[in-house]
Design a protein around this nucleic acid. Sequence first.
DNA 1: ATGTCACAGTCCCTGTGA
Length: 253
Amino acid sequence: MKVVTWNVNSLTARWPRVSEWIEANRPDVMLLQETKQTDEKFPFAGFSELGYESAHYGQGQWNGVAIVSKVGLESPTRGFGDGDPEARIIGATCGPVRVYSCYVPNGRALDNPHYTYKLAWLSRLRDLVAQRAEALPHVVGGDFNVAPTDLDCYDPSAFTGATHVSEPERAALGAIAATGLVDLTRRLHPDEPCFSWWDYRNGAFRRGWGLRIDLLYVDEVVAAATTASYVDRDARKGEKPSDHAPVVAEFTL
DNA sequence: ATGTCACAGTCCCTGTGA
Protein backbone atom coordinates (compact mmCIF):
# COMPACT_ATOMS: atom_id res chain seq x y z
CA MET A 1 0.00 0.00 0.00
CA LYS A 2 1.05 3.53 -0.74
CA VAL A 3 -0.14 6.00 1.90
CA VAL A 4 0.51 9.75 1.71
CA THR A 5 -0.10 12.69 4.03
CA TRP A 6 -0.30 16.16 2.49
CA ASN A 7 -1.28 19.55 3.86
CA VAL A 8 -2.67 21.08 0.67
CA ASN A 9 -3.34 24.62 2.01
CA SER A 10 -6.82 24.94 0.44
CA LEU A 11 -8.14 22.09 -1.68
CA THR A 12 -10.09 24.66 -3.70
CA ALA A 13 -6.86 26.38 -4.74
CA ARG A 14 -4.90 23.13 -4.95
CA TRP A 15 -7.28 20.85 -6.87
CA PRO A 16 -5.24 21.02 -10.12
CA ARG A 17 -2.06 20.01 -8.25
CA VAL A 18 -3.77 17.37 -6.11
CA SER A 19 -5.61 15.67 -8.98
CA GLU A 20 -2.46 15.75 -11.10
CA TRP A 21 -0.48 14.19 -8.24
CA ILE A 22 -3.03 11.41 -7.81
CA GLU A 23 -2.94 10.54 -11.51
CA ALA A 24 0.85 10.45 -11.50
CA ASN A 25 1.27 8.53 -8.23
CA ARG A 26 -1.95 6.53 -7.72
CA PRO A 27 -1.70 6.30 -3.91
CA ASP A 28 -3.97 3.84 -2.10
CA VAL A 29 -4.78 6.25 0.72
CA MET A 30 -4.36 10.04 1.03
CA LEU A 31 -4.55 11.94 4.31
CA LEU A 32 -5.27 15.58 3.52
CA GLN A 33 -5.13 18.61 5.79
CA GLU A 34 -6.20 22.25 5.48
CA THR A 35 -8.85 21.65 2.85
CA LYS A 36 -10.37 24.99 3.94
CA GLN A 37 -13.76 23.96 2.57
CA THR A 38 -17.24 23.16 3.75
CA ASP A 39 -18.39 19.60 3.11
CA GLU A 40 -20.65 21.04 0.39
CA LYS A 41 -17.62 22.34 -1.54
CA PHE A 42 -15.48 19.21 -1.12
CA PRO A 43 -14.82 17.52 -4.51
CA PHE A 44 -16.30 14.09 -3.73
CA ALA A 45 -17.22 13.74 -7.43
CA GLY A 46 -13.75 14.72 -8.59
CA PHE A 47 -12.14 12.06 -6.42
CA SER A 48 -14.75 9.53 -7.54
CA GLU A 49 -13.87 10.17 -11.19
CA LEU A 50 -10.27 9.37 -10.29
CA GLY A 51 -11.40 6.09 -8.72
CA TYR A 52 -11.42 7.11 -5.07
CA GLU A 53 -13.85 7.18 -2.18
CA SER A 54 -13.48 10.10 0.19
CA ALA A 55 -14.59 11.36 3.59
CA HIS A 56 -14.30 14.97 4.71
CA TYR A 57 -14.56 16.85 7.97
CA GLY A 58 -14.71 20.49 6.97
CA GLN A 59 -15.69 23.74 8.58
CA GLY A 60 -15.15 26.28 5.80
CA GLN A 61 -12.56 29.02 5.89
CA TRP A 62 -10.08 27.27 8.17
CA ASN A 63 -8.85 23.76 8.94
CA GLY A 64 -10.61 20.81 7.30
CA VAL A 65 -9.26 17.24 7.00
CA ALA A 66 -10.02 14.40 4.62
CA ILE A 67 -9.29 10.77 3.82
CA VAL A 68 -9.24 9.60 0.22
CA SER A 69 -8.96 5.89 -0.60
CA LYS A 70 -9.15 3.40 -3.44
CA VAL A 71 -8.96 0.39 -1.11
CA GLY A 72 -12.20 0.98 0.79
CA LEU A 73 -13.30 3.58 3.32
CA GLU A 74 -15.35 2.39 6.29
CA SER A 75 -16.36 3.61 9.74
CA PRO A 76 -15.35 7.26 9.40
CA THR A 77 -15.11 9.29 12.62
CA ARG A 78 -14.98 13.08 12.71
CA GLY A 79 -13.29 14.95 15.53
CA PHE A 80 -12.64 13.61 19.02
CA GLY A 81 -16.35 13.45 19.78
CA ASP A 82 -16.02 16.07 22.51
CA GLY A 83 -17.73 19.03 20.85
CA ASP A 84 -14.55 20.80 19.68
CA PRO A 85 -15.80 22.95 16.75
CA GLU A 86 -12.45 22.92 14.90
CA ALA A 87 -12.28 20.33 12.11
CA ARG A 88 -8.84 18.85 12.72
CA ILE A 89 -9.05 15.06 12.78
CA ILE A 90 -10.84 12.39 10.79
CA GLY A 91 -10.40 8.63 10.98
CA ALA A 92 -11.43 5.73 8.75
CA THR A 93 -10.69 2.11 8.02
CA CYS A 94 -9.12 1.69 4.59
CA GLY A 95 -8.54 -1.92 3.63
CA PRO A 96 -6.29 -3.49 6.27
CA VAL A 97 -5.46 -0.31 8.19
CA ARG A 98 -7.12 2.22 10.47
CA VAL A 99 -5.94 5.67 9.43
CA TYR A 100 -6.24 9.16 10.88
CA SER A 101 -5.64 12.50 9.17
CA CYS A 102 -4.59 15.12 11.71
CA TYR A 103 -4.15 18.88 11.51
CA VAL A 104 -2.56 19.87 14.81
CA PRO A 105 -3.15 23.51 15.87
CA ASN A 106 -0.33 25.91 14.95
CA GLY A 107 0.00 27.42 18.41
CA ARG A 108 1.05 30.86 17.13
CA ALA A 109 3.33 31.76 20.10
CA LEU A 110 4.38 30.23 23.41
CA ASP A 111 2.35 32.77 25.40
CA ASN A 112 -0.72 32.55 23.16
CA PRO A 113 -3.94 30.73 24.19
CA HIS A 114 -3.67 28.82 20.90
CA TYR A 115 -0.47 27.23 22.24
CA THR A 116 -2.33 25.93 25.29
CA TYR A 117 -5.00 24.60 22.93
CA LYS A 118 -2.29 22.93 20.83
CA LEU A 119 -0.84 21.06 23.82
CA ALA A 120 -4.30 20.01 24.99
CA TRP A 121 -5.16 18.88 21.45
CA LEU A 122 -2.01 16.70 21.28
CA SER A 123 -2.92 15.22 24.66
CA ARG A 124 -6.38 14.32 23.39
CA LEU A 125 -4.78 12.74 20.30
CA ARG A 126 -2.58 10.66 22.61
CA ASP A 127 -5.64 9.48 24.50
CA LEU A 128 -7.36 8.55 21.22
CA VAL A 129 -4.47 6.54 19.77
CA ALA A 130 -3.75 4.91 23.12
CA GLN A 131 -7.14 3.18 22.82
CA ARG A 132 -6.22 1.27 19.66
CA ALA A 133 -6.37 -2.13 21.35
CA GLU A 134 -8.28 -3.53 18.37
CA ALA A 135 -6.57 -5.71 15.82
CA LEU A 136 -6.16 -3.27 12.94
CA PRO A 137 -2.74 -1.80 12.16
CA HIS A 138 -2.71 2.00 12.48
CA VAL A 139 -1.38 4.97 10.51
CA VAL A 140 -1.75 8.31 12.29
CA GLY A 141 -0.54 10.97 9.89
CA GLY A 142 -0.80 14.65 9.24
CA ASP A 143 0.56 18.10 9.81
CA PHE A 144 1.70 17.99 13.45
CA ASN A 145 3.11 21.52 13.47
CA VAL A 146 5.97 20.23 15.63
CA ALA A 147 9.53 19.44 14.53
CA PRO A 148 10.31 16.39 16.69
CA THR A 149 14.06 17.11 17.09
CA ASP A 150 16.61 19.73 16.05
CA LEU A 151 17.46 17.59 13.01
CA ASP A 152 13.95 18.40 11.78
CA CYS A 153 14.64 22.15 11.71
CA TYR A 154 16.92 23.96 9.23
CA ASP A 155 18.24 26.30 11.94
CA PRO A 156 17.24 25.66 15.56
CA SER A 157 18.80 28.97 16.63
CA ALA A 158 16.27 30.81 14.43
CA PHE A 159 13.47 29.17 16.43
CA THR A 160 14.57 30.12 19.93
CA GLY A 161 11.46 30.93 21.90
CA ALA A 162 9.19 29.93 19.01
CA THR A 163 6.54 27.29 18.62
CA HIS A 164 7.09 24.04 16.68
CA VAL A 165 10.33 23.22 18.54
CA SER A 166 9.49 23.82 22.21
CA GLU A 167 10.08 21.12 24.80
CA PRO A 168 6.39 20.76 25.81
CA GLU A 169 5.38 20.25 22.16
CA ARG A 170 8.13 17.67 21.65
CA ALA A 171 7.16 15.94 24.89
CA ALA A 172 3.57 15.78 23.64
CA LEU A 173 4.79 14.01 20.49
CA GLY A 174 6.84 11.72 22.70
CA ALA A 175 3.73 10.77 24.64
CA ILE A 176 2.01 9.83 21.38
CA ALA A 177 5.00 7.72 20.32
CA ALA A 178 5.04 6.12 23.78
CA THR A 179 1.70 4.47 23.03
CA GLY A 180 3.66 2.28 20.62
CA LEU A 181 3.84 4.39 17.48
CA VAL A 182 6.89 4.98 15.33
CA ASP A 183 7.86 8.20 13.50
CA LEU A 184 8.21 6.31 10.24
CA THR A 185 10.25 8.78 8.19
CA ARG A 186 12.82 9.11 10.97
CA ARG A 187 12.95 5.33 11.52
CA LEU A 188 13.87 4.81 7.87
CA HIS A 189 16.05 7.92 7.51
CA PRO A 190 17.85 8.45 10.82
CA ASP A 191 20.28 11.10 9.54
CA GLU A 192 18.55 13.07 6.75
CA PRO A 193 16.42 16.10 7.62
CA CYS A 194 13.57 15.08 5.26
CA PHE A 195 11.91 18.48 5.48
CA SER A 196 8.24 18.61 4.46
CA TRP A 197 7.38 22.33 4.81
CA TRP A 198 8.97 25.55 3.60
CA ASP A 199 7.58 29.05 4.20
CA TYR A 200 6.30 30.76 1.07
CA ARG A 201 8.27 33.86 2.09
CA ASN A 202 11.94 34.73 1.73
CA GLY A 203 12.66 32.08 -0.89
CA ALA A 204 12.69 29.52 1.90
CA PHE A 205 12.37 26.48 -0.38
CA ARG A 206 15.22 27.59 -2.61
CA ARG A 207 17.39 28.24 0.45
CA GLY A 208 16.59 24.93 2.10
CA TRP A 209 14.92 26.63 5.08
CA GLY A 210 12.52 23.83 5.91
CA LEU A 211 10.97 21.93 8.77
CA ARG A 212 9.87 18.32 9.08
CA ILE A 213 6.43 18.70 10.61
CA ASP A 214 4.36 16.37 8.42
CA LEU A 215 4.64 13.00 10.11
CA LEU A 216 3.44 9.43 9.76
CA TYR A 217 3.12 7.66 13.10
CA VAL A 218 2.60 3.94 12.57
CA ASP A 219 2.54 0.92 14.84
CA GLU A 220 5.29 -1.69 14.74
CA VAL A 221 3.27 -3.95 12.44
CA VAL A 222 3.18 -1.24 9.76
CA ALA A 223 6.74 -0.12 10.46
CA ALA A 224 8.04 -3.66 9.98
CA ALA A 225 6.11 -3.97 6.72
CA THR A 226 7.37 -0.66 5.28
CA THR A 227 9.56 -0.85 2.20
CA ALA A 228 9.98 2.87 1.45
CA SER A 229 9.33 6.34 2.82
CA TYR A 230 10.03 9.64 1.10
CA VAL A 231 9.09 13.29 0.68
CA ASP A 232 7.99 14.32 -2.81
CA ARG A 233 9.87 17.62 -2.98
CA ASP A 234 8.89 18.07 -6.65
CA ALA A 235 5.34 18.77 -5.48
CA ARG A 236 6.66 21.91 -3.70
CA LYS A 237 7.90 23.26 -7.07
CA GLY A 238 6.04 24.69 -10.06
CA GLU A 239 2.75 26.53 -10.40
CA LYS A 240 0.74 27.30 -7.28
CA PRO A 241 2.28 24.70 -4.95
CA SER A 242 1.19 24.08 -1.37
CA ASP A 243 3.80 25.18 1.16
CA HIS A 244 3.91 21.51 2.26
CA ALA A 245 5.17 18.52 0.25
CA PRO A 246 3.53 15.09 0.33
CA VAL A 247 5.09 12.54 2.70
CA VAL A 248 4.72 9.01 1.39
CA ALA A 249 5.06 5.52 2.86
CA GLU A 250 4.91 2.20 1.04
CA PHE A 251 4.24 -1.02 2.95
CA THR A 252 2.94 -4.51 2.36
CA LEU A 253 0.47 -5.99 4.82
C1' DA B 1 11.80 39.68 11.05
C1' DT B 2 9.41 38.42 6.57
C1' DG B 3 10.90 39.02 -0.14
C1' DT B 4 4.02 34.78 0.11
C1' DC B 5 -0.33 32.75 -0.31
C1' DA B 6 -5.35 32.09 0.62
C1' DC B 7 -9.59 33.46 2.65
C1' DA B 8 -13.69 36.51 3.66
C1' DG B 9 -15.60 40.93 3.87
C1' DT B 10 -14.79 45.96 4.27
C1' DC B 11 -15.52 43.17 -2.12
C1' DC B 12 -10.39 44.78 -6.62
C1' DC B 13 -8.15 46.47 -1.35
C1' DT B 14 -7.61 45.22 3.64
C1' DG B 15 -7.23 42.32 7.83
C1' DT B 16 -6.24 37.74 9.42
C1' DG B 17 -3.92 33.29 9.74
C1' DA B 18 -0.23 30.37 8.56
